[in-house]
Design a protein around this nucleic acid. Structure first.
Lengths: 343, 343
DNA sequence: TTGAAAGCGCTAACAA
DNA sequence: TTGTTAGCGCTTTCAA
């Protein structure tokens, strides 16, 4: 309709009151007594004029942007392959929008320009930061946290004590391995999701080891192979496992994508799943249920992760107490057909 | 470090110049002659003070937010299942960030509050809108477009002539069907991706029909079944196809997810793919390559779709001419093992 | 119960 | 080549 901007001034004029009064009414400012009819008049005027509060002006005057940045640091290619980010973002945006905040999205990849986080904050563009991904020890974040900047990490940072949300990788991996043990397996291989420089890789390995130890089984270094996020890396790793003089009867592969490669390799060797080798994965990617047999795996609660991370950041931003600075969500084991009794 | 805001004023003081001069230097304002040493002095001061231009103030003064809204209207659950959104968002954010703009993300679902788009624009929060998803005929968008608001649709709107980016669904479906025809199939079923109220469903059906007609094959209504986005709907549809007195030797399923259900059904009937029935899908979801046999399908260029949509919106926002208001990207047929020669 | 006015940090027209 | 100044639209203290 009208091409010109509607400001509080126009609303005030139309309602025959001052700008202040309009501001009070529109903001529902407490401790101000405005006659109901004046209030009504103002509200009507605003509605009729299609008034929308100017974001920049409000932000400038209040010093709050009511916006947070969701920064994802996985390499861009991964975003297009996996549904992880979609679920996460879905949760984050639900939590954040619910609190009346907006979400700025950044796919920074691994080589973001130094100072990018700080600039977002210094320019008052956002009130807080939510960062997901394999961040190498990022001292910039430590500094910001020390300055009191609200931020939360989705993941398990390996240094400092930044607020973070993640699944309990150790317990989850233990659960997956225990499942295999309960099925009677005694010689269980492990393929990590990534290099051990990543906390999540180390933690999942730790869970595997804990399960074996608890069951009194020996830890065999040769049974532990390193994956590197891709299905190809799963092929390599499984090949090494199969070349072992005494090969395992089962394997815990700490990433479904890596497991895909492992499974392919097993088949190429003419072996059957779960007949010859049982497999338990990790992540529960959408495709896990469509494999033949379905992949038994640990479900990663993507949406919940985002929901909790978003909520935590909102609490931080609004100065509310945060119940748990290092939140670790439980996972569940989804039992399908890829792991069976060892006989 | 310092808890207080650094403004241009501080930078000016430190460099011993006026605020205007600082503004000119920092903005690289043309047609202004500033001595190199002054410029250097200012830049140094800004750097030393960790100056970051206040976003709200700039935005208020210039009337530009340098921000766009990426609004996704698919039901939230779908976001967590498919990698489509991740790829799209990846492309969008690349294009938009590259142009120096920021992306606000909104998962609005299907029941967004009336007036949400307009409010984003009226409040000057964003300079443009990028909307993805099955939007029912949304008159609000038509109004905004008429007002001159920069916006682009990712998809194929069924009314008006809003700027949009999508794949060429008709040509893609034709290509998929032709592939089957070339393999010697004469009785080819079709399962749509969704109800025919969706433009994309209609277009893919049209492509199928065009291919048959071009090959002089009859159009058999019974061979056309309706899918509804889910794999379950694929089960139903394929069941109907298999119950036909004279069942097809091949089927074009206009959605990989729906094809998943169709494939399962075929197997449950004891039939083999591609031995008894050939299948060609649409979308190339990540899992397509992992099926046994791999799913022959039409690849949907997710990232490129986002890239082009983002670029088009940037052009619109900056008042540049838009080469093609209704951009239709080509797709490619990914040949794997699910479709074979009819013998 | 309502109004006046200062100020948030920046841009840009105008002066000098 | 650099400085002055008037807004941009809103919040909020202080008065009336």
């Amino acid at each position: 309709m009208s091409g010109k901007r509607i400001t509080m001034k126009q609303v005030a004029e139309r309602a025959g009151v001052s700008r202040t009064t309009v501001s009070f009414v529109l903001n529902n400012t407490p401790n101000v007594n405005i006659s109901p009819e004046t209030r009504e008049r103002i509200l009507d005027a605003a509605r009729e004029l299609h008034y929308a509060r100017d974001f920049a002006a409000t932000s400038l005057a209040t010093g709050r942007a009511h916006t947070i940045a969701f920064i994802i640091r996985q390499p861009p290619e991964e975003l297009s392959v996996d549904a992880f980010m979609g679920g996460l973002l879905n949760g984050v945006s639900q939590a954040v929008n619910h609190a009346g905040y907006h979400v700025l999205f950044y796919a920074m990849g691994l080589n973001a320009s130094k100072g990018a986080y700080a600039e977002l904050i210094r320019s008052q563009r956002v009130d807080g930061l939510l960062i997901s991904g394999p961040l190498v020890e990022d001292s910039e974040l430590l500094d910001l946290d020390a300055e009191g900047v609200p931020l939360v990490i989705q993941g398990t940072p390996d240094v400092g004590d930044l607020p973070s949300v993640d699944v309990d990788n150790i317990a989850s991996a233990r659960m997956a391995t225990e499942h295999l043990i309960q099925l009677g397996h005694r010689r269980i291989g492990m393929i990590t999701n990534g290099p051990l420089t990543y906390t999540s890789s180390r933690d999942r390995l730790t869970g595997y080891i804990q399960a074996l130890e608890a069951a009194g089984l020996p830890i065999d270094e040769g049974l532990i192979q390193s994956g590197e996020f891709s299905d190809d890396s799963g092929v390599q790793a499984m090949n090494r496992l199969l070349e072992l003089p005494h090969r395992p009867t089962a394997a815990f592969v700490a990433s479904d994508v890596v497991a895909l490669g492992a499974i392919r390799t097993i088949r190429e060797h003419g072996l059957r799943i779960p007949g010859d080798i049982s497999i338990v994965g990790f992540d529960d990617i959408p495709l896990a249920q469509y494999l033949e047999p379905g992949l038994t795996t640990v479900r990663l609660p993507r949406v919940e992760l985002g929901l909790h991370a978003g909520k935590m950041l909102m609490d931080l931003v609004e100065g509310k107490p945060v119940p748990e600075r290092h939140l670790r969500l439980n996972t569940s084991l989804i039992i399908r057909g890829s792991a069976a009794l060892f006989e």
